[in-house]
Simulated assay, not measured.
Amino acid sequence: MRAPSVMRLVLLSVPLCSAPAWAIERCSFQGKPINLDNGNSTAKLTGTVRCVDEDTKKETHTVSFKNGKQDGWEVRRWSDGRAVEQEYKAGKRHGGFKRYEDGRLVETSHYVDDNEQGESLRYHPNGKVSRRVDRQPEDEKSTYEDYDETGRLTKAGCGLRSSWEAGLKDCVWKGPSPLVFFHPNGQKRAVIPLKNGRRDGVTELFDKDGQRTATHAYAAGVLDGVSTRYAAGKALTSTTWVQGQREGDETEFFNDGGKKQVVTWKDRQQVKRVEYFQNGERKHELVVTGDRAVESYFEDDGSLRERRNLLKGDFHNGFDPDGVTEAFFPDGGTERREHYVKGKAEGRRQVWAENGTLVEDSQWTKDRVTTRKRWNPDGGLVEDEAFHEDGSRKKK
């Protein structure tokens, strides 16, 4: 009499599958029961173990061994049409991989020495490829391509962890030029001219309604020339690039097309920034020369309101007042003049009334006032004080 087969209560589930189902498996090798969960049972095994569902008697699992290690195909099948097939060599995943849902092939891949490597494919329900990956040991040499259900390319690039779109830098596209990406509705998302597999010329980007959203000039796969962003057919920003670095003017526009801000770049540094009123007059200007800068504020009629001399901060990336700061009345007369050293008031501070009368004259040390005189606009003295380090007035 044949001995009864060993039963296995198995939770049938694989990644990316729906809710698991319970089943009892009976596994055997050459007609004899075997327990796949017991390593001693398979320690010297060569051949194929087959498992069936106790109720349906349908084959649910086959595992091939050689000298006690998995070698060949392992196949798992579920009653709902799911299945997974994995090839092994000397106990490691090595070779093909296939995954099915509802009896339909949804994914194929390839393994080398227990690591996924080479081409893998995923499929849409209609059988067309949805994603193609060529996985290489060096991630930056891996490539990917995504397609919609009609076979139109939606995305492609290099690197699966830190991704670069096709044609950028060293991500060479082996397909035809121009490289075209599509939105889900079939509208072109990007039209990318190529030369030797790298972006070269003006790339155009579009939204799902066909409106142009940007243009980028490239040379040998890096930004080189003018890049412009658009909204409702009007330019929002325009940036000049040289060999992948911003160099020259970066301009932001008002909706009416007028300049809103212009930032000038040189050697990766901002050397000038000008903000404008919508009437075209300057609003704010910062001009940088090495570690120093001059900052100016203007009224909307173009008159200068304030000018500050600045020095790059010791402990931050911004600038601090250093030197003379002056404020002006609308007629150009001086309203205030003060002196700073590395962000702190140091030296003389003077304030004038609109009629030109001096109304304050004070001395400062390390951001605190030491002496101060104040007058009425008609010239009458109203204050003449000296101060201690704690800010209290010295007694006369």
Rank of each mutant, 00 (worst) to 15 (best):
E25R: 10
D53Y: 14
L153S: 02
S163I: 02
N317F: 11
P330W: 09
Y123D: 07
E383M: 15
E252P: 10
I192L: 11
N38H: 13
A83Y: 02
P377R: 01
S18Y: 07
Q70N: 05
F298T: 01
A235F: 00
E250W: 15
P321M: 00
A293N: 07
D378L: 06
K394E: 05
V14W: 15
G186H: 13
L36Y: 11
D300T: 08
E165P: 00
M1A: 06
T46N: 09
E140M: 10
A90H: 06
V359D: 04
Q136K: 05
W364K: 02
F277P: 09
V180K: 01
G380K: 15
Q211E: 12
T228E: 05
E385F: 04
E338A: 08
Q269Y: 11
E25Q: 10
A217W: 09
E346C: 03
F181G: 03
G323N: 14
Q261K: 13
G391T: 10
G233P: 02
S5D: 12
K169G: 04
E295I: 04
Y230K: 01
H339T: 15
T62N: 01
A3L: 15
D170Q: 05
V63H: 00
R93W: 08
D361I: 13
K260Q: 15
E285Y: 06
K208P: 01
K169Y: 13
K342P: 03
V75I: 15
S5Q: 07
E149T: 09
W164V: 06
R99S: 10
R348L: 14
A235E: 02
S120I: 02
R374C: 09
P377L: 03
